[in-house]
Design a protein around this nucleic acid. Structure first.
Lengths: 122, 122
DNA sequence: CGGAATCCTTTTGGATACTG
DNA sequence: CAGTATCCAAAAGGATTCCG
């Protein structure tokens, strides 16, 4: 049995793969929102995400769609109607999102206590 | 009881917080490597990560250090000796890394079957 | 040995205006 | 309504040189 090679690269890293899909200023937020609101139209999303521009919303949605994480359903109507929802495959990201959320909640505390200590030391 | 506000921003998102720490081309790879190799010197790390430049290695290490994820220990010697290791706090990221790795492994399959289907459809 | 400094290219993100 | 298209600023990443 051979040893695992010690030479590592980002391209071979499974963690990096997963990470790449979630990276983007609004992607986690969009995903979380879709996960607990179910299907949403473009402008519904936009209203729920104050501060996002159309361009960014479109952009992030497209990237998530390319990765098969969300589904885009276009209705042939005037005016147009487009619905977005998380695919079943997309739901497989939930454990990751959950782990991150858990960690993030504790992290907030950690950061606060660090700042507190630094303030004391000053 | 008031409803949870539907207005969301990246800055309020715990998931985004966690994500921010792991983001960086080499951060996950460095972290994983340190996690199962224990303490490593700068050049040991560099050798284990072919393709990385000193600048990037320094850069990513500094950012992880700032977040208190890794520890940097400098020995007052000539020639210099600097050791890096994961802090206990850093180890709290393991569930996230694990979830990502698990997902990444399956994702590879998913991508392959997608490409396969596309090749067929051509 | 373990960097810092500089310069450059690429990638992201933002503002704004226009359109089927 | 749900987008494009442009242009621009900021951030990330890369190559190279120099240093205590």
């Amino acid at each position: 049995m051979k040893d695992v090679p010690v030479e590592i690269q980002p391209e071979m890293c499974k963690v990096t793969d997963a990470l790449g899909i979630l990276v983007g200023k609004w992607k986690p937020v969009i995903l979380l929102h879709l996960l607990n609101s179910g299907t949403q139209r473009f402008n519904e999303l936009k209203r729920s995400l104050p501060g996002i521009t159309q361009k960014m919303l479109t952009n992030q949605l497209r990237e998530l769609e390319e990765e098969d994480i969300i589904e885009r359903k276009v209705y042939a109507q005037v005016p147009p109607k487009v619905e977005y929802s998380v695919t079943e495959y997309g739901r497989s990201l939930e454990p990751i999102l959950h782990a991150m959320h858990e960690w993030g909640a504790k992290h907030t505390i950690h950061k606060q206590s660090k700042k507190h200590n630094q303030a004391e030391a000053k």
